[in-house]
Computed example of a mutant assay.
Amino acid sequence: MSYDPLQEAPVQTDIALLSDLWKGLADAEETVHRAVAAAVAHPEVKPPPDAELSVALADDAEVKRLNRDYRAKDKPTNVLSFPATHGPMLGDVIIAYETLVKEAADEDIAVSDHLTHLTIHGLLHLLGYDHETEAEAVTMERIETEVLASLGIKDPHATGRIMPDGPHA
Rank of each mutant, 00 (worst) to 15 (best):
Pro49Cys: 11
Ala58Cys: 13
Ala56Asn: 11
Val40Trp: 03
Leu100Asp: 02
Ala158Pro: 06
Asp14Leu: 06
Asp59Glu: 08
Thr119Tyr: 11
Tyr129Trp: 15
Ala9Leu: 03
Ser2Tyr: 05
Ile143Val: 15
Pro156Arg: 09
Lys102Gly: 08
Ala72Ile: 06
Arg161Val: 00
Asn67Trp: 06
Glu98Phe: 09
Asn78Gly: 14
Pro43Met: 10
Ile109Ser: 13
Ser19Trp: 05
Gly87Phe: 06
Arg65Asn: 09
Leu124Cys: 00
Glu52Asn: 09
Gly24Asn: 14
Asp60His: 10
Ala84Asp: 10
Leu118Asp: 09
Asp106His: 03
Val32Cys: 02
Leu18Pro: 01
Ala16Gln: 15
Val40Cys: 02
Phe82Pro: 01
Asp113Trp: 14
His168Ala: 14
Gly152Val: 02
Leu123Pro: 05
Ala96Ser: 13
Glu146Gly: 04
Asp92Gln: 14
Gly166Phe: 13
Glu132Ala: 07
His114Glu: 12
Arg34Leu: 13
Ser150Thr: 04
Arg142Leu: 08
Thr119Ala: 01
Gly87Thr: 09
Pro43Val: 15
Glu29Met: 07
Glu134Phe: 02
Arg71Leu: 11
Asp130Lys: 14
Ser19Val: 04
Asp165Gln: 01
Ala37Trp: 02
Gly160Pro: 01
His131Glu: 13
Ile143Thr: 15
Gly91Ser: 07
Ala16Arg: 14
Val11Ile: 03
Val11Met: 09
Leu151Gly: 10
Ala28Gly: 10
Pro167Val: 14
Val36Gly: 03
Glu98Leu: 13
Met163Ile: 02
Ala58Gly: 04
Ser54Met: 14
Thr145Met: 04
Lys154Trp: 04
Glu144Gln: 15
Ser150Arg: 10
Glu132Ile: 08
Lys46Gly: 03
Ala105Glu: 14
Thr31Phe: 01
Pro49Arg: 12
Ile162Glu: 00
Thr85Gly: 09
Arg34Val: 08
Ser81Lys: 01
Val101His: 10
Pro43Thr: 09
Ala105His: 15
Lys73Tyr: 03
His86Pro: 04
Asp130Ile: 00
Asp69Gln: 14
Ala110Ser: 15
Phe82Gly: 03
Asp14Gln: 13
Glu44Pro: 01
Glu146Val: 05
His33Ile: 08
Asp4Phe: 03
Ile109Val: 15
Leu151Thr: 06
Ala58Ser: 13
Arg161Thr: 00
Ala61Pro: 03
Glu146His: 10
Val111Lys: 05
Asp165Ser: 07
Leu126Asn: 07
Ser81Val: 00
Pro156Ser: 07
Tyr129Ile: 04
His168Ser: 02
Asp20Gln: 11
Ser112Lys: 12
Leu127Pro: 02
Ala158Leu: 14
Pro164Ala: 14
Ala104Lys: 00
His114Asp: 14
Thr31Gln: 12
Val45Lys: 00
Trp22His: 06
Lys64His: 15
Val138His: 07
Ala110Ile: 08
Ile120Ala: 01
His157Arg: 12
Ile153Asp: 01
